[in-house]
């Protein structure tokens, strides 16, 4: 698996898109720091961008890479390699190269700005950790979609729909439910609802770390009570890990049964 990972990783590192992605984050980091002139504020703005953009890029890149490397995959399948190692290697190659673009692209300007001397370092690390989680999750979901759809256009369509669903529609529907049932106590429900969507979970996690939960009113207080504790933090990371593991398991399972 490590050999496949290595080749996929280097293959992507050489592609133009990795550089574009890296350069985008680099630019974003620099611009935000100069405009805000404040590390903590830059982190909040960054969060808003990352929460939406990272899943989108992860899905698109995942689907694109899978379809583009179809022939390469077939070449590998004829070699004495296990199917699971081929697909996991490719998946990790994509996910890690995307994560690296994210971490380096944002990390470099912040480090130069004096991140290590500021107290925003933990918030910033949390941002990068959730960003990496989101990359891992959405690339895995993208691989699942691509594995299940021979048709590229369909695959892309479903991938975009998935992103739209989790990044935007879920929030809307969630909000609607909360408004509809506003007469009932909803704090538990909203907590569970947040846990079930990795994007919402990451957003809440960062918001509460940034200590702006007051904006969220009463629910914010409940959330703060939950996510602010170590227990809540651990549960959140467990949920994010489950979100990575389940799609990865399906990649392994699905790839074993697929015809090429």
């Amino acid at each position: 698996m490590l050999k496949i990972l290595k080749y996929s990783f280097f293959d992507l590192m050489r592609s133009r898109w990795s550089y574009v992605y890296f350069a985008f984050y680099l630019l974003l980091g620099i611009v935000l720091l100069f405009l805000n002139n404040d590390l903590s504020k830059a982190v909040i703005t960054l969060m808003n961008v990352i929460i939406v953009l990272v899943p989108l890029i992860g899905t698109i890149f995942g689907v694109m890479y899978y379809y583009n490397s179809k022939e390469f995959t077939e070449l590998l399948l004829a070699q004495p390699l296990k199917r699971s190692s081929i697909f996991l290697g490719q998946y990790l190659g994509v996910a890690l190269s995307l994560s690296m673009s994210l971490i380096l692209g944002l990390g470099i300007p912040f480090v130069f700005y004096g991140l290590f001397k500021s107290n925003a370092i933990w918030d910033f690390s949390l941002l990068l950790i959730t960003g990496t989680f989101l990359t891992l999750i959405f690339t895995a979901l993208a691989f699942n979609i691509a594995l299940s759809n021979e048709n590229k256009i369909k695959g892309f369509g479903y991938a975009i729909l998935l992103w739209l669903l989790l990044a935007i529609i879920y929030d809307g529907a969630f909000l609607m439910t909360l408004i509809m049932f506003e007469d009932y106590p909803l704090d538990k429900l909203s907590l569970v609802g947040t846990m079930l969507n990795p994007i919402d979970l990451s957003r809440t996690l960062i918001l509460l770390k940034l200590d702006i939960s007051a904006l969220l009113g009463y629910t914010g207080a409940v959330f703060k009570e939950f996510f602010g504790t170590n227990f809540g933090l651990i549960i959140s990371f467990i949920m994010l890990t489950v979100w990575v593991i389940l799609p990865v398991l399906r990649i392994v399972f699905k790839s074993k049964k697929k015809d090429f």
């Binding site: 293959d11 050489r14 592609s15 490397s69 022939e71 390469f72 077939e74 070449l75 004829a78 070699q79 004495p80 390699l81 296990k82 199917r83």
Partner: peptide, 21 residues
Amino acid sequence: NPDYRHKIDYLPQIANFPSNL
């Protein structure tokens, strides 16, 4: 076990390789 493929050389029908390599 995939190891039996060590004993096979296979020429696929359409030679489409990763174009970056």
